[in-house]
């Protein structure tokens, strides 16, 4: 930033990533958001205590993942037959029927990407406290941006609700405890991606670097 300031009269802080407009304001004040004046896209949302909220939420999400993935979500019974739906056995029955590409897409979007998001967020928020993890954290933030939109728990939830209504007339549908855990996990997943603010991480790392330099 310093060399930038010497070279040019206006201290540009940020360029809008959707319309390339140069802005002098870099970050939003706490509790508010910064909106691009030209294209109205949200540039930065400054939530309070973003790092700690994200750690708490992603830990909760990881804990909720265990029952959501192991307990049955729905139970369908017809005459004396019955079958459960868990997060994984739907994928397995697609895989068994030979739809490997479809099975891996469903597996990725409903299990791996949400789990990965929780793990990456936890690593980013906790890891930004140590110097030797700087490169790994920067790399992880990049990966988080890539898999962010592939976590589709909310779409899966809607799929469950549609299946629930669709099969209600055919046989007996029961909601199993896993579904409540899954619903909670979906909520926590959305909250954690909402509360995560990568600028807070970069600021935290920059502050730690500045403190270290001041101490030396």
């Amino acid at each position: 930033m310093d060399q930038l300031r010497n070279k040019k009269p206006i201290p540009w802080q940020r360029a809008c990533h959707e319309c390339d407009l140069l802005l002098t304001g870099g970050l939003a004040p706490p509790g508010q958001k910064l909106v691009c004046p030209r294209c109205r896209c949200t540039l930065h949302r400054n939530g309070n205590h973003s790092v700690y909220y994200t750690i708490a939420l992603s830990l909760t999400g990881l804990l909720l993942f265990i029952p959501s993935a192991s307990l049955p979500l729905l139970r369908f019974s017809l005459f004396s037959f019955g079958a459960d739906n868990t997060l994984l056995n739907g994928v397995y029955s697609l895989y068994k029927a030979g739809f490997i590409w479809l099975a891996s897409l469903v597996l990725f979007c409903s299990v791996l990407a949400p789990l990965g998001k929780f793990l990456l967020l936890l690593f980013i928020c906790c890891g930004s406290a140590w110097k030797f993890l700087d490169r790994a954290v920067a790399f992880t933030v990049r990966w988080y941006q890539h898999i962010k939109e592939w976590g589709m728990l909310d779409v899966y939830m809607l799929g469950i609700l549609v299946a629930l209504i669709k099969l209600r007339d055919l046989g007996k549908m029961d909601v199993e405890p896993g579904l409540y855990c899954f619903g909670a996990m979906m909520l926590v997943a959305n909250l954690s991606s909402l509360s995560f603010d990568q600028n807070a991480i970069w600021q935290r790392m920059a502050l730690r670097r500045a403190l270290r330099e001041a101490a030396l």
Binding site: L74, A97, L102, L105, V106, G159, V162, L167
Partner: peptide, 15 residues
């Protein structure tokens, strides 16, 4: 992806 998720749920339930 809604329809595909639904197929995977139904395939597990109705078997």
């Amino acid at each position: 992806l809604l329809d595909l998720f639904m197929i995977s749920i139904l395939a597990a339930l109705v078997d």
